[in-house]
Design a protein around this nucleic acid. Sequence first.
DNA 1: CAATCAATATACCATGATGTTATGAAGATT
DNA 2: AATCTTCATAACATCATGGTATATTGATTG
Lengths: 307, 307
Amino acid sequence: MLAAIIDSGGLGEGAITLNKSQPSVSRSVAMLEKRLGSRLFEKGKRPLRPTELCQVLAEQGRVIAAAGDAAQAAVDLYARGKAGTARIAGTPIFMDGVISGMIASFQSTFPGVTIHQSYGYLSELSEQLGMGSIDLAICPVRANAVPPDLNFKPILRGRNVIACAPSHPLARKSAFKLEDIAAYPWIAPPAGSPLYSDLKMALDSIGIHDFRVSFTGGSLASIISVMGGSDSLTVLPYSVVFMQRAARTVTALPVKLEHPERELGILWHVDRPVRPAVKRFHKFLEAEFTGLAHRIDERGREEVWRR
Amino acid sequence: MLAAIIDSGGLGEGAITLNKSQPSVSRSVAMLEKRLGSRLFEKGKRPLRPTELCQVLAEQGRVIAAAGDAAQAAVDLYARGKAGTARIAGTPIFMDGVISGMIASFQSTFPGVTIHQSYGYLSELSEQLGMGSIDLAICPVRANAVPPDLNFKPILRGRNVIACAPSHPLARKSAFKLEDIAAYPWIAPPAGSPLYSDLKMALDSIGIHDFRVSFTGGSLASIISVMGGSDSLTVLPYSVVFMQRAARTVTALPVKLEHPERELGILWHVDRPVRPAVKRFHKFLEAEFTGLAHRIDERGREEVWRR
DNA sequence: CAATCAATATACCATGATGTTATGAAGATT
DNA sequence: AATCTTCATAACATCATGGTATATTGATTG
């Protein structure tokens, strides 16, 4: 109040800038003067001149007002999801191959939001969502296997492909027989991962029951690196291969695999309040994925799925 | 409150450090949560864990609390007279020769107090006290000439002496006749100053009616400087000469002059509130002057006043 | 210098934030 | 499961703060 009065040059003017009535401000000042035992404005001066003490207090008042404004601004940013934190976790290959790119693009539009990323499979993710240590999980889930305390929003059909380096002999042939595939070594995902069972199922579906695993346990970056330096094959979600297309590090063989019954989706806890930043990120992810699904469908028809 | 709760690790503990009851703090938090539309503490956690938003707001709260503490500290300092401003004015020779030294010693004990010094004679001082543009005036005043709206506190008898440089011929003689004095040129204070009439009266009292003025209009520093380089004489308050004793730039001739009817004193306005810093400075001045008066009396008996 | 104007102070009432004590509810712990 | 600690709620009191209406008082002007 003191700062407002001083800056606007009068008690009445000050009251206006404070959105208060003139008597209210007058009385507040009078009460403070009584409490301090010193005048805050010179006695008997009509354009109300501030005392020395008043100036000092006004200075602190300005600091307080600025902090109040900053707090208000922080609340606004937070409420509109433009500041805050979103903690997201998911299966490693997906996080590295798909989500991380989306996070980058999200952060270019919402630089105030901090993203905490971590990795895990369904059981850990479910537990962490329950404990509240993460906000969202991205994970392939069978529709009937969604834990009861979690919401599930599918975002992508779970289609896997056989992946290899663009330099792989099979990738350069326009046509090949399924038996040719059996000759090459395989990169297997970590044993616990859903992709590992996918791999077995997929190979079963094309009649390959016996295969040699040359490398296992690596993250996406390792897998791509190993593939690039060898003739190894692996099974990856098509979306992951698709996202790598610009880097030309991975390609998909035109082999139709049997698909798992799972869908990739976003999981979150049923009755845990959703922070605005999380909501914002969630919506962003969904939008990105519908866009991605379209582009995959368009391109997929041309390039893959032929046998 | 948020900062207190976070820092002391719990709502109850926070309430204690805030000197409030636990329910009061609890409800305040709840009201703020409702107003913000977001939680400030995690739901269902008993050692009450702060939300992200809460941390941000607590940060601003700490700023506000610090500013509040600073304001309180400023008020305390001000009320105890250890911070603030005192505006003092007085006759030039006195301000330069006596008061300025006291100001220096005052400021070494009260470095937070700002002293504004200015110069003037009784009429201006009286007016400025009336307008409130100065707080204290130091000036020789005749007891019956104190303006009615001013208080007057005498601090020193107005004794004048004939002053000269220590190297002056008369200062080196153990005895001399009054006629010898007439031979030397005089430094006269500014024509408007009380000292000027003192000069005439003093010389009249020892039978010198005709004297040559060699220099006039200067401040104390000029007068001392001119005296040092010449055989000029002047009339100065003995207190001024006394304060210069350490510098050995001025000495007093052992001539008994007739003294003006005025007393040096402190003037202040009757019904203007006295700021604590002014009060403090005022008391300090009075104490200094009683000390000075004693020392002058002791020494004066030995050195001067012999005829 | 009186009349007038603008600025501030006061009177009076309403409201709501904030304080208290007593007590209930719910995580945390053993 | 029992108990303890911690927090939330209930019920009430108080006072700062807000408003409108009006009085008071420096400032201004003819």
